[in-house]
């Protein structure tokens, strides 16, 4: 590469570099520094692990995101392969409906969870009629789990469907000819074939669940996920230092998860989230 060419490339990259620095690197660095300027200094970061409230929220957020990711992949895996393999009337409609949640903000999804499992919701009505007891779980982790799975499905199912289309049916026939029963074929052929899609879609799903706020905010009260804690620290307690430290850690964990997935899957994972 000649000197002129290199100069031209640098010039072309400049706008992207400036935007990246201005809206990502600088705020992040500032966030990191603010996290260390409180009365306790850098130990604000330590507090995330030592303070039971922060630590519990961190753990429950990671667990929630991980279980949402697992549940979403199972559902999208089965539905994605089915939709790819079967042609039936209304298939396009079903696919479109499964991707519909992309159009809703988190608040609306929270509202839908309340309609379903809230105090006046459908599920409590049904359980009341059946067992004489109102099952209300919208305002708990269970409600959040449901909402998150709902809005995670569209983010994974299209990737799974695209990947399922490329599965070679001969591989399944070969496995069967060698004596593999259906479950064995799923475990030995279909799941390995879909693995890259699972990793890349799962990473995005995890990252989105880690940072999601609107749904948690709508369901509020008893839920203690990290984005909610950051919001509370920032607006109600005016604890800018702790909010910054928590934000930085939230970002770091999510980024690490994406990086890990990327190293497993090659380079097909978009660092979105």
């Amino acid at each position: 590469m000649g000197g002129r060419e290199r100069l031209l490339l640098l010039a072309l990259m400049a706008p992207a570099a400036i935007v990246f620095a201005a809206f990502f690197l600088l705020p992040l660095a500032r966030l990191f520094v603010i996290g260390g300027t409180g009365p306790t200094g850098w130990s604000a970061y330590l507090a995330i692990v030592t303070d039971a409230r922060y630590f519990r929220s961190l753990v429950s957020t990671v667990l929630l995101s991980a279980s949402v990711t697992a549940a979403t992949l199972v559902i999208s895996g089965i539905a994605g392969v089915f939709l790819e393999r079967n042609r039936f009337r209304g298939r396009a409609l079903v696919t479109a409906m499964l991707t519909l949640p992309l159009a809703f903000p988190g608040v609306v999804i929270g509202f839908m969870v309340i309609m379903l499992a809230g105090r006046q919701g459908l599920i409590p009505e049904i359980t009341d009629a059946l067992f004489n007891e109102r099952l209300v779980f919208a305002y708990s982790m269970a409600g959040l789990f449901m909402g998150y799975v709902y809005f995670s499905i569209p983010r994974t199912i299209l990737t799974v469907m695209a990947s399922a289309e490329k599965l070679d049916p001969r591989l399944e026939e070969a496995a069967r000819s060698l004596g593999a029963r259906p479950w064995r074929v799923v475990a030995d052929v279909i799941v390995p074939g879909l693995k890259p899609a699972f990793i890349s879609a799962g990473a995005i799903c995890f990252a989105t669940a880690m940072g999601a706020f609107g749904t948690a905010f709508t369901l509020a009260t008893r839920i203690n996920v990290l984005p909610m804690v950051i919001y509370t620290e920032f607006t109600l307690q005016a604890n800018l230092v702790m909010a910054s430290a928590l934000s930085f850690v939230l970002g770091a964990i999510t980024w690490a998860a994406l990086a890990l997935a990327r190293s497993f899957a090659g380079s097909s994972v978009a660092a979105a989230g």
Binding site: D168, R170, E173, A174, S177, D188, K195
Partner: peptide
């Protein structure tokens, strides 16, 4: 209990 060989080989890539 048959053995089968395909034009596309159909070997398990994993």
């Amino acid at each position: 209990n048959v053995g089968m060989v395909f034009q596309s080989y159909a070997l398990f890539p994993n």
